[in-house]
């Protein structure tokens, strides 16, 4: 008998979600595989703590996958899960103010082993050791500058210029008026330009 189930690796998000709704565990894994890095990146840049970001990313997926029955297919799955991730991160930030950023490990790590264990694993854009170092330093400056923004600005700027989402989608995801989203993003860019002015010089 021919297997009518779609190949998850090539299926659209909507097809994978349908399979997940039908109870296919591999579909859950596929959704996690597709979104673990974007979601973790967004949350890490929002909360600036690796351990916390992992916990919150897990919480995001657990919430999303447990509520997959209530997901409405007329919306993009990516928008839906990013919205959940943003809510989780903002809720966390409201509960707890974090002030410092470390690319080299969690500021909450108490021992050298814990710092090493919590060090970030960057993506796959490094070419040579020098380029990696430069990219790391520049990336660190930008990450620090993003970390200085207000959480609302941070969420908007990350969605717009790191995730490449259109303004309208960001407004829907964050439950904000379109004009507010545009204002936040322009203000965030102005602030970032100021924070990073020394790099231009």
């Amino acid at each position: 008998m021919a297997d009518r189930r779609p190949d998850l690796a090539t299926a659209t998000d909507q097809e994978v979600v349908s399979e997940a709704r039908a109870g296919r565990q591999a579909a859950y894994r596929e959704l996690v595989r597709r979104y673990e890095r974007p979601i973790f990146s967004l949350i890490y840049r929002m909360v600036r703590d690796r351990e916390r970001a992992e916990d919150l990313a897990q919480e995001t997926f657990v919430k999303a996958l447990n509520a997959v029955e209530s997901y409405r297919p007329e919306f993009k799955f990516s928008s839906w899960i990013f919205k959940i991730a943003n809510n989780v991160a903002i809720d966390h930030l409201r509960r707890r103010e974090l002030s410092t950023l470390s690319l080299d490990g969690s500021p909450h790590a108490a021992t050298p082993e814990a710092i090493q264990a919590t060090a970030l694993q960057l993506g796959d854009r490094q070419e040579t050791a020098l380029e990696e170092l430069e990219a790391r330093e520049l990336g660190g400056e930008i990450e620090r500058a993003i970390g200085r923004l207000r959480p609302e600005y941070r969420a908007c700027i990350l969605m717009r210029h790191v995730e490449g989402r259109p303004y309208e989608e960001i407004a829907t995801m964050l439950d904000l008026p379109l004009g507010t989203v545009k204002t936040y993003i322009h203000r965030a860019r102005n602030e970032l330009r100021q924070y990073l002015a020394h790099l231009r010089q």
């Binding site: 973790f40 970030l120 993506g123 210029h161």
Partner: peptide, 8 residues
């Protein structure tokens, strides 16, 4: 836009 994706 060039910021890397981070991995858990």
């Amino acid at each position: 836009g060039a910021l890397p994706l981070l991995s858990p």
